[in-house]
Amino acid sequence: MRMSALRISQLSSATGVPATTLRFYESEGLLPADRSANGYRVYDDRARQRLAFITAAKSLNLSLPEIKLLLRVWEKDSCAAVKAELGPAIESHIAHANESIAQLTALRESLTDALARLGDTPDAPTPCNPDCTWLISANTAVGTA
Rank of each mutant, 00 (worst) to 15 (best):
A81G: 12
A124Q: 13
L71P: 14
T133L: 12
R48P: 12
D45R: 08
T133Q: 10
N38K: 15
H96G: 14
L60Y: 15
L69Y: 03
D45L: 02
D44M: 02
A37Y: 08
D113I: 11
P65E: 00
S78C: 10
L71E: 02
G119I: 08
A138F: 10
I94Q: 14
K68E: 01
D113W: 06
V82T: 08
W74T: 13
S110E: 03
K83M: 10
A57W: 07
Q49L: 10
N129S: 09
T133Y: 08
L71T: 02
I136V: 15
A89C: 02
R48S: 08
R35P: 06
A141W: 09
A102N: 11
R48T: 06
D120K: 13
S36F: 01
A95S: 15
L115A: 05
L71S: 04
Q49P: 12
R35F: 09
R50W: 02
R117L: 05
T126D: 09
Y40D: 03
A114W: 06
V82Y: 05
A84T: 08
W134V: 13
D45Y: 06
E75A: 15
L30F: 01
A57P: 13
G87F: 01
N98R: 15
L71W: 04
D45T: 07
D131V: 02
L115F: 04
D131T: 07
K58H: 09
L107S: 11
L115S: 05
D131G: 15
G119C: 14
A57D: 05
K76H: 15
L111N: 03
R72V: 12
T105E: 10
V73C: 05
N61V: 07
L51S: 03
N61M: 07
V82R: 04
T112F: 06
E109R: 03
A47Y: 05
P88R: 00
A52K: 04
E91N: 14
I54S: 03
I90P: 00
A89T: 06
D77M: 14
A141Y: 07
T55K: 04
I101L: 15
T55V: 08
R117K: 13
H96R: 15
R108M: 01
D123A: 14
I136M: 11
K68I: 07
D34K: 12
R35S: 00
N139G: 07
A57I: 09
N38G: 10
L71N: 03
L69H: 00
